[in-house]
């Protein structure tokens, strides 16, 4: 079982599609540049947590790979892996390797 970066991006986009109808008055773009967390982010903390959990489950469903995206290692990084779609995809591919 392994995870390519493209698969990680697909899993994130699918989570965005699922989350968008639940968001009040905002819509996340399916783009690697979309900011998820920190300055300029559209998501509040609970929706960010929900998105990250959806991505974990999507990756597991599509590739059979169990990745832990919410870990102490992730939280303590200087550059947050939750900052953007790109950062999250990079991190997912990295921890699945």
């Amino acid at each position: 079982m392994s995870l390519s970066r493209e698969q990680a991006v697909t899993a994130i986009y699918e989570a965005i599609d699922e989350l968008n109808p639940q968001l009040d008055g905002i819509s996340l773009e399916r783009s690697e540049d979309t900011i998820l967390f920190g300055e300029g982010a559209a998501l509040d903390s609970l929706n960010l947590v929900n998105l990250v959990m959806m991505v974990e489950q999507n990756i597991m469903m599509e590739t059979g790979t169990e990745v832990l995206l919410a870990s102490e290692a992730a939280m303590s990084r200087k550059r947050s892996p939750y900052r953007s779609v790109k950062a999250l995809a990079d991190y997912a591919a990295e921890v699945a390797a």
Partner: peptide, 8 residues
């Protein structure tokens, strides 16, 4: 909660 959160 991770599973339940998806369906709110």
């Amino acid at each position: 909660a991770k599973l339940m959160g998806r369906r709110k």
